[in-house]
Design a protein around this nucleic acid. Structure first.
Length: 354
DNA sequence: CGTGTTTGACCGGCGC
DNA sequence: GCGCCGGTCAAACACG
């Protein structure tokens, strides 16, 4: 959540979802019966002046609340930016001093046996110092604190639980709209993933797929993909850790589709040169097209690994914002949920309720 | 034949 | 201590 979001008209917390913005003259009159077709109510002509006045007041109050929330968001985003830049600096500093060890842990391939314990300890040993951390802290937009925590050394002694928790790799989520008939758990994020497991979890009848970044053998990033229990048209991808490499090169033959080598089930392949498109997308749910566009956009943003410029970035963000807004407003279930929530709230606060 | 997926078994953390 | 459950491994398999 960046400051720019609050400045985007489409992302204003005053959501204009399908229905015209609860204008004063269209305020839902039949509030006492919100469960009766809302659309009908919204279109009914105005009846009572006092009600309207009350609603107006309420609307203003809610707008005010919206503004406050937006400000709070802005503040949070600003703090995040500060933390992120701090993290980037720290990583840059760390990279110049310590670079070696990470490559030895996996590159040297653990002994043939399935001693996960040992390999894991190697992994954590390599990961803990943060030496091989992602050079660009773009990935986890939602957990700025995690970056700093990654820097901590997980040496023995102190309350392991807490330390372990703080040493946990950054976790971020990405929601992607997917065709329910498409059973493959594929989330295009621009990286190459190799599936290494699938499991049905307790809280969700849909299986969860486990992926590892296959572009770099030593890349610690993992991804879990599972359909949402509530809405199986939504794929929830959970990313853990950060890529310690640049993005895979664009594979022209794969640009148009998501074909994997084996092609029957398929982990995501890079349709375009991505950066952490996942990071950019994690706050931008529910649309493959959006996702594709984000990848393009993010790729454009990070030519040569460096941001192209503030203007381009601004353009990109605006574009993303528009896409996000469109995605939301197109989603009937979102509209329905919003309308229900709004009407319920209004009803709750309405002085005329009965 | 190389690469990637599938799938049953195993491991370890966690709650009771 | 025990059982549940999520995460991972690795042999078998499929595909180009």
């Amino acid at each position: 959540m960046d400051p720019w979001i609050s400045s985007q008209p489409s992302l204003s917390l005053d959501l204009h979802v399908g229905l015209p913005p609860l204008s004063r003259h269209q305020a839902p009159v039949a509030l006492a019966k919100p469960k009766v077709l809302l659309e009908e109510n919204f279109l009914q002509p105005l009846k009572k002046e006092p009600e309207v006045a009350a609603l107006e007041t309420e609307l203003q109050r809610m707008s005010e609340e919206n503004r406050r929330l937006a400000e709070a968001l802005t503040a949070v985003a600003a703090k995040y930016e500060a933390l992120r830049s701090q993290y980037t600096e720290m990583v840059a500093a760390g990279a110049t001093t310590t670079t070696g060890p990470s490559s030895t842990s996996e590159g040297g391939s653990v002994s043939p046996s399935r001693k996960r314990k040992t390999s894991e300890s190697l992994d954590t040993a390599a990961a803990a110092p943060g030496a091989q951390q992602h050079p660009h802290g773009l990935h986890g937009g939602q957990h700025p604190g995690g970056a700093a925590a990654d820097q901590m050394e997980c040496t023995s002694g102190e309350p392991c639980k807490r330390i372990r928790e703080e040493c946990k790799p950054k976790v971020s989520k990405l929601y992607v709209h997917a065709d329910p008939s498409d059973l493959s758990l594929v989330v295009k994020d621009g990286y190459q993933w190799r599936k290494y497991g699938q499991k049905v979890t307790k809280d969700n009848p849909c299986p969860r797929a486990y992926f590892r970044c296959s572009f770099a053998p030593a890349c610690p990033v993992k991804k879990k993909v599972q359909r949402s229990a509530d809405d199986n048209t939504i794929l929830v991808a959970t990313y853990e850790g950060e890529h310690n490499h640049g993005q895979p090169p664009p594979a022209p033959s794969q640009q148009a589709h998501d074909g994997s080598g084996a092609s029957k089930n398929a982990a995501a392949k890079p349709p375009s040169p991505p950066r952490p498109a996942a990071a950019a997308a994690q706050a931008a749910p529910h649309h493959p097209q959006l996702h594709q566009q984000q990848q393009d956009v993010v790729a454009a943003m990070s030519v040569g690994g460096e941001p192209v410029g503030a203007a381009a970035s601004e353009l990109i963000r605006r574009n993303l914002a528009e896409q996000m807004a469109m995605t939301l407003t197109r989603d009937p279930s979102f509209k329905a949920a919003l309308v229900t929530a709004l009407s319920g709230r209004i009803l709750e606060l309405s002085p005329t309720k009965d």
